[in-house]
Computed example of a mutant assay.
Amino acid sequence: MKDKKIVMGELELELEILPEPEPLDLPKFSHDFKEVVESYNSGRADEDMPADELLARSHIAPGTGSYRDFSYIAPDIPHYIAPNCTGCMECVTECPDTAILAKVLPESVVEEELAKIEDPETRERMRAHFAKTKKFYDLPQRKGKEAGLFSIFIDPTKCKGCAECVAVCDDDALEMVHKEGTMVPEYQEEFDFFKSLPDTPSDYINERTPIDMMLTDKTHLFVGGAGSCAGCGEATALRMLAAANAFAYDDQWGIVAATGCNT
């Protein structure tokens, strides 16, 4: 394309008109972005990472915050006490970083999934995440349906230790504990188990109850990993907005924002 001259009084500017950029290959860019984040996490970015023209132009693929790891930031992390849990979901909806998630599965399905774990100690550690609540266990039985086990799992890579989940829990089902020993790897193993589980069946979801929708995998579009402050209320609001729209429209929608943290 030809250059363009602009004359403003005595000032004459010559602009170079660049060709249209190639369409962005989003899957490839997302993969490349993961490598960028991993380079920074490992401390080798300055040594062997080439300049990235897309990052330089502020092209950030959606969902890439999921590659960030905050497990080394906060000294404390929530501990779930299943026997005290009522399945109210207050902790899940309040978390600004998608660091605490819940799921309900038929009791038989839970037992099938636990049976796949060979190590007895690990199996019991996973079992400790499942609670028998009135809403999901007792009520379905009264209706002649299979009882569901409610579960809470914490993602150590996304939790910033803000303790918002503990603050909103009126049932003493969560407490902050100090990270020590093998706790973080164990939390990660437990969260990986959570991600391997089937999605919550529709039988346990009341679509007229907004909090129930966050039991489904498709509502977890706000992936966490944002650089926002711990306990950020803005992130909580955006996360709930994302969950509500995802429940209704899957991923066929988006947010355009440029106000700092939420980007």
Rank of each mutant, 00 (worst) to 15 (best):
140 P>H: 06
140 P>T: 09
140 P>A: 14
141 Q>P: 03
141 Q>N: 11
141 Q>G: 15
142 R>M: 14
143 K>P: 02
143 K>S: 11
143 K>H: 15
147 A>V: 07
149 L>G: 00
150 F>Y: 15
150 F>K: 01
150 F>W: 11
153 F>C: 05
153 F>P: 10
153 F>A: 05
153 F>Q: 01
154 I>K: 05
155 D>P: 02
156 P>A: 06
157 T>S: 04
157 T>L: 03
157 T>W: 02
161 G>E: 00
162 C>Y: 01
163 A>F: 09
165 C>P: 00
168 V>T: 14
170 D>W: 08
171 D>I: 03
172 D>Y: 15
172 D>K: 15
172 D>P: 02
172 D>M: 15
172 D>A: 15
173 A>H: 06
175 E>R: 15
175 E>H: 06
175 E>M: 13
179 K>P: 02
180 E>D: 13
180 E>M: 00
180 E>V: 01
181 G>A: 07
182 T>S: 12
185 P>Y: 03
185 P>R: 03
185 P>D: 05
186 E>W: 03
187 Y>F: 10
189 E>H: 10
190 E>V: 11
191 F>W: 04
191 F>E: 04
192 D>Y: 03
193 F>R: 00
194 F>R: 01
194 F>I: 02
196 S>K: 10
196 S>Q: 06
196 S>H: 11
197 L>G: 05
197 L>E: 04
199 D>P: 02
200 T>N: 07
202 S>V: 11
202 S>T: 13
203 D>R: 09
204 Y>Q: 08
205 I>N: 06
205 I>E: 05
206 N>K: 05
206 N>Y: 02
207 E>F: 15
208 R>T: 06
211 I>A: 08
212 D>C: 00
214 M>K: 12
214 M>V: 14
214 M>Q: 12
216 T>H: 12
219 T>I: 04
219 T>C: 02
220 H>E: 08
221 L>V: 11
223 V>M: 07
224 G>R: 00
225 G>L: 01
225 G>R: 03
225 G>A: 10
226 A>T: 10
227 G>F: 05
227 G>D: 02
228 S>T: 10
228 S>A: 13
228 S>E: 02
229 C>Y: 11
231 G>P: 07
233 G>E: 10
233 G>F: 08
233 G>N: 06
234 E>I: 07
234 E>G: 13
234 E>A: 12
235 A>N: 12
235 A>C: 11
236 T>P: 00
236 T>F: 04
238 L>M: 12
239 R>M: 13
239 R>H: 08
242 A>N: 14
245 N>F: 09
245 N>A: 14
246 A>K: 00
249 Y>K: 14
249 Y>T: 11
250 D>P: 02
251 D>C: 14
251 D>Q: 12
